[in-house]
Simulated assay, not measured.
Amino acid sequence: MPTVACPQCNSTNRVPQERLPDNPNCGRCGAPLFQGRPVTLTAANFDRHANAGLPLLVDFWADWCGPCKMMAPQFEAATRSLEPRVRLGKLDTEAEQQIAGRYGIRGIPTMILFKGGKEIARQSGVMSAAQIAQWARSHV
């Protein structure tokens, strides 16, 4: 039974695999576990989401990065096609330099796919929503 971190309160929820498509809510705060947009990741919630039972696809980005701004709507669109099989999140490398450093982020945008807290795939550069979804599906 996969665990899903709540995008609102970050509590961990056990959700049977067959119930994931049923728009489950958090058992603690009642918020929807899947909201059709990436979760904002910070030092406070990153590990909780990365170590949850669902794969986590993270877009490492920065506000000053033109290519990151071009990819942002594509990444959000990919969220709608990948949830609930994959959780998507965005991490601002300027605000969260320690986490970006932990994963050796040298260029942005960079996407890293985590499963069980471990990096299983990495891709740098701008991609379309379809390319992001296809790339993620090929690794989970």
Rank of each mutant, 00 (worst) to 15 (best):
Q8L: 11
T42S: 06
Q134I: 14
A44E: 13
G101T: 07
A43H: 08
D47L: 08
T110V: 11
P73C: 06
T110H: 05
V15G: 00
C65E: 06
A78E: 04
Q17K: 15
P55Q: 02
F34Q: 01
G125F: 07
G30C: 08
A133K: 03
N23V: 12
Q134K: 15
Q123C: 09
R37C: 10
R48I: 15
V39T: 10
L20C: 02
K118Y: 06
G53W: 00
P7I: 04
Q134R: 14
L33Q: 00
S128M: 12
A129Q: 10
Q123D: 11
M127H: 11
F75Q: 00
F114P: 03
L57F: 05
A95L: 13
G27D: 06
A62S: 07
A72M: 07
C68W: 00
P67S: 10
G30L: 07
L91P: 00
D63M: 15
I99S: 02
V58H: 03
C68Q: 03
E94P: 07
N13I: 04
M70W: 10
A43F: 08
A44H: 10
A31C: 09
C68Y: 02
E96Y: 13
L20T: 04
K118P: 06
Q98V: 12
I108Q: 04
L88A: 00
I105D: 02
R102K: 10
V86N: 01
T93K: 01
L20A: 04
S128Y: 09
C68V: 04
M71K: 02
T79I: 04
M111P: 00
Q35T: 11
M70H: 12
A133M: 10
I112D: 03
R80A: 10
M70R: 15
R48C: 10
I120L: 08
E119P: 09
E76C: 07
M71H: 00
I132H: 02
E76H: 11
F46Y: 06
